[in-house]
Structures are given as C-alpha cells and as structure tokens.
Design a protein around this nucleic acid. Structure first.
Length: 487
RNA sequence: GGUCCCAUCGUCUAACGGUUAGGACGUUGCCCUUUCAAGGCGAAAAUUCGGGUUCGAUUCCCGAUGGGAUCACCA
C-alpha cells in the first residue's frame, strides 16, 4: 500500500510551494489507492506559530486535498488525529526519538558531543576565513568512554551526533532527479538530538517515515543535500528505505526561490484574492508536470489518474501569475451563475443582505460579469453599476463617429418603445430589439450604444439586453430618462 | 568557497538521434461584434557556448558559462 505524507512545520501559513508538494504527495497516494498523511513537524518550539496548524488544514481543505490520516482536523484549540501510527505531532513523540538515538549510540553509529555553541561558532568562523569546507570538526567524535562518563555525570549539556563514515559513497535513485551520489567524507556529522532533548529534523523524519510506513518521501529540492544523512540513518537502523522524490523549486520572476518579498506566497492570499481552488490546483500541478500532450485543463480526479512523478521536471519553475489568471477565468466561466454567486457572496460583505436581494436575483447580477472578471474579488466592483449608476460624462453616450443628436434621438425612441414592451426574457427582448432596429430604418446594432451606456454608465459593460433584464423595468426607463436629460 | 542539482520561445513546457523544433500563457494582426469579455483564424518569439561520438544531434559524452539549492543544537 502506497503511503505518502505532507510534513510541514507549523511556522506560518501554507505556502503555494507547499501546496504543490502536498498535491503531488496526495496524487501519488490517490492514484494507487493509498493514504495521504499529514504529520506536523514541530520540533522547534521557538519557531512554532500559533494558528499555523489550523491555517494549513484550512488551505488543504479549501484545495480539496485533505489528509486521510494524521492530523486531520483542528477543533476547540486542539488537533484531532486519525490513524494507527500516531501521534502525528512530533512534539508528542519525544520519547521515541530518544529511544532511537540511544540505539544509535549503543551501536556506535552516533556519539555524544559536548561542544558548546561558542566553540562551534568559532570553528565555523575559522573554516570560513580559511576558505575551507564548513562542518563539524569531529572534536568529540573519538572521545573515550571515561571522559564521556565524566561529562555525563557532571551534567554537561550534550547533543548526539551522527557518526558519518569517512569512506565510501552514498548513492540513491531519486524518482525525479535520477541517480544522485555523495562522498560520505564530505557529509557532516549532523546533530540528531539537541541539548533540549528534542530531535532535529534529520532524526525525526527518518524515524517517523519508517514508523509510519511511508513508502514515498516527496519533498522540496532543498532536502536533496541532506538525503545521504537520511539514507545512512536507514542503514544504521537496518530499515528498508522509502522512495525519494525531490521536487524542483517554485521561483520568482527573477528565478530566485519564490519569496514573500516578490508577491503573494500563501495559499490564503489567493483565496482572499478570489481565485478558485480548481484554478490554483490545476496551475500549480502544471508547474513542473504535464501529461505529455496538449491538454491543459485537469480536474483533481483527472490529475490523480494521470499524474506521475517520473514525468516531473528536474528544473525549477517560475510562478507565473498570468497563467493562473487564465486558469481562473476559465474555471469561473465553467460555473453556473448560482455557483459563482455563492462563492462571491463573502466578497460583498453585508451588501446583498442589506439590500434584501434574493439569491436568484443576485445570481442574475453575477451572471452579468462572471465571464468578464478574472477573480471573485473583482465582482463587487464590476457589478456595482447595477446597484448604483455611476456618474458618467455625457460624451460617453455618443458612439464613435455619431453625434449627440443621434444619441438623443435613439434614446427618445427607445424610451417610448420600451415602455410598451415586456423586459423579462433576454432572448425575447433581443429578438424584438433587432426587429425594432429594422423597423426604424437603422442599419446595425451600433445604434444601441447609447442605450447600453445609459443603463451601465460605463465605457465597457455587458450588453444592454442583459442589463435590462436584470434591472427592474422602472429602473431601465429611469436610467434612459437620466441619460436623455444629460445629453 | 565546498558539495549537489539544473539549462528549449519573455513564462510554463513537448520532442525519449532524423520534426518546417509542437502546444499553452502573455504580446500582437485580422474576423465576429453595440463596448468589453469570450470565441475563431494568423504573426513574432527558443534549443547558453565550445569540443567530441555519429551518416545525422535539442536529444548521448566532456568542458566552459550561467542559474539554483545546501553547508545550524531551523525545518
């Protein structure tokens, strides 16, 4: 059974890069009928941020890639865990890490290190100044048993370090990068257990991924250089290794690692801006992956069917908002007026309630602009002319090369005529207007320009029939009168 | 600086030795059209550079260059 996990540290909101990592892990699990697990890596108390766990969960839920197992919900200020392999919060697993560190110590794969932070600092400074490779100098690596005992009984603070072999190579086959190899002697003796008894990432991931029966470790590229440490750890414990897949990074326009400084990076930012989950997911999935043909539109289910890690690109991808906009417009157009209205409601604040507008009527209003905007957040502004006619200049009523006289004439005729007919059905109205144009000796629809502006007060807007049908008949006539007075 | 990874239009990418180097976003021209949007049809736009290997390299090898990641008792 395939088991994948997403393992964020609760240091803030879910990053779009994290969303993609989570998505890929989710897809790999789903397409094999496996499980997608959420584990929280909160082993650094200093960096933990309150509210981060619910925020991450909320983003995952919004994107419809909620975990099957692990930390699945957050209620009453506490996490709700689900699954056989818990706890899924690393801060609740301290004992487990300590036991495993001890195993390593006993077997001689790790050692106590009593070096102070200051000594390490100095050491690094010297290496840096001498332009030498940085890393632990092995000061405590071969300390004799008596001295270790002495330090321990004296209560000296210590860390536990991995005793990396000084010879050989560590090779592994990354599902995305292919064969990768490192010289062991260049791999640092990583701290596994900190002085406060908490594990570092390196010990915790390996122990947890094994104990939680994770089959595919899917994570960001930034972990590639520390993977040999993890591989070695698996070997020390005599455990079967999972498959590794290191995803290329998401980049800023200038190709640097995607950062907050250069735009929005939190999933929540895109929710607030009115992007649809289908759009963000589709977009982010295609940053580094494609089905191998020309198709661009993929639902979550379709992605789950066709996605494969082997086809993920090796190089980073620029997070290009224009393409996201295109996806969002596309998905917006696919939804019904009612669906968009429902999604757009929060962006209107109390306005719709205050106006006592019925939801069907609101949906009709939304229908006017849903295919013209790129995000939900633009809807209130786009649709505002329905609720209040903007103050527009009289010249706007005059179409291109025609004259004010002509505009006045058409509006006058239209006013008289519209009073007599029913303005309920758009298609019916359109038919009648076309007939009216012919009957009155006009040659084309351009004569309707003044009408459209009279109703919308805008240079660019939906067509006059669409607007007329949404507005009350009285309001239609009133707006024409206002325009007539202006011109 | 050490180590590792990467390199096709501006951007996301396809082409697993032989293609007029394909698609999408964006840009742009035209059509449709009452404006806008959508849609339709076009255009401009790329193999980082050198060496090999081969009858033939975007593709395989080497080197250079460039970019990125990482070198914490952070993840």
């Amino acid at each position: 059974m395939i088991r994948t996990r997403f393992a964020p540290s609760p240091t803030g909101f879910l990053h779009v890069g994290g969303l993609r990592t989570a998505l890929y892990a989710y897809l790999v699990a789903k397409q094999n009928n496996g499980k997608f697990i959420l584990r929280v890596e909160d082993t650094d108390q200093k960096r933990s941020v309150e509210g981060a766990i619910p925020a991450i969960l909320e983003s995952l839920n919004w994107a419809d890639i909620a975990p099957d197992e692990g930390v699945v919900e957050f209620e009453n200020n506490d996490v709700i865990e689900k699954g056989e392999y818990g706890p899924y919060l690393q801060s609740k697993r301290l004992k487990i890490y300590e036991q495993h560190a001890n195993i390593l110590l006993e077997k001689g794969f790790a050692y106590y290190c009593f070096c102070t932070a200051e000594r390490l600092e100095e050491c690094r400074a010297k290496q840096s100044a001498a332009n030498r490779p940085m890393g632990y100098d092995g000061h405590c690596r071969e300390m004799d048993v008596a001295e270790i005992k002495k330090n321990l009984t004296a209560g000296a603070p210590y860390t536990v370090r991995l005793k990396m072999p000084k010879t050989g190579m560590t090779e592994f086959n990354d599902l995305i990068k292919g064969k990768v190899s490192f010289k062991n002697e260049l791999v640092d003796d990583q701290v596994l257990l900190k002085t406060d008894g908490f594990p570092t990432y390196h010990l915790a991931v390996v122990v947890d991924d094994h104990l939680m029966a994770i089959t595919h470790v899917i994570r960001g590229d930034e972990w590639l250089p520390s993977t040999p440490k993890h591989i070695y750890l698996y070997e020390c414990f005599g455990w079967e290794k999972p498959m590794f897949a290191h995803l290329p990074l998401l980049l800023n326009a200038n190709k640097s690692k995607l950062s907050k400084r250069q735009g929005d990076v939190a999933v929540g930012d895109y929710v607030k801006k009115g992007y649809l989950p289908e759009a963000l997911i589709n977009f982010v999935a295609f940053l580094g992956w494609n089905p191998g043909d020309d198709r661009e539109i993929f639902s979550l289910a379709e992605l789950a069917k066709e996605f494969s890690l082997e086809k993920v690109n090796k190089s980073g991808a620029v997070f290009n908002l224009e393409k996201l906009d295109w996806y969002n417009k596309y998905y917006l157009r696919q939804l019904s007026n009612e669906q968009v209205a429902e999604l757009a409601l929060p962006f209107f604040g109390n306005k719709i309630k205050d106006l006592r507008l019925k939801i069907e009527d609101f949906a009709n209003v939304i229908g006017l602009e849903k295919e013209r905007v790129t995000t939900l957040a633009e809807l209130p502004g786009a649709v505002n002319f329905i609720f209040e006619l903007p103050d527009y200049p009289a010249e706007m009523l005059v179409f291109k090369k025609s004259t004010t006289e002509e505009a006045k004439k058409v509006l006058g005729e239209l006013l008289v005529w519209l009073e007599k007919i029913d303005l309920k059905d758009k298609n019916d109205l359109e038919k009648q207007v076309i007939q009216w144009i012919k009957d009155n000796g006009y040659t084309n629809g351009a004569v309707l320009w003044p009408l459209r502006v009279a109703l919308s007060g805008q240079d660019k807007s939906p067509g006059p029939f669409e607007i007329a049908v949404v507005l009350d008949k009285d309001e239609v006539l009133r707006r024409i009168q206002v325009a007539l007075a202006k011109v």
